[in-house]
Amino acid sequence: MKEIEELNIPGDIYYSKEHEWAAKDGDLIKIGISDYAQDQLGDIVFVELPEPGASFERNEEFGTLESVKAVSEIYLPVSGEIVAVNTELEDAPELLNEDPYLNWIVEVRPNDIDQYDELLSRDDYLAMLKG
């Protein structure tokens, strides 16, 4: 298991308390899981993705990640409509372990862009992990 100093936590994106990351991509926001999340989960063997077009509230469960031993829910850090899902994860769920930032999970059209600014910065997220 990685020590906190060994984790990759990029500074140009935001994080949620549930260990997802969110990155602005024009009008849309890409969502994934942090390096801490993938390290804790271990080998991810199945990803349950929502349907494009589905809408979720902030902090609502939008899918699940299966590791060998357990199921983990993933929560949408900002409310909005799912405009794209990363279908590569259906055949290769291990991509989330290999590079959790390159391999996004869903892309969202946010209802309220202020919610993005309310997420945790890198420093806030690291502080939360250390605390």
Binding site: G42, D43, V45, S67, V68, K69, E94, N97
Partner: peptide, 12 residues
């Protein structure tokens, strides 16, 4: 140990 860095899938 639950798993080593190679991961539980590789171990299995």
């Amino acid at each position: 140990p639950l798993w080593y860095p190679s991961g539980t899938k590789a171990e299995h």
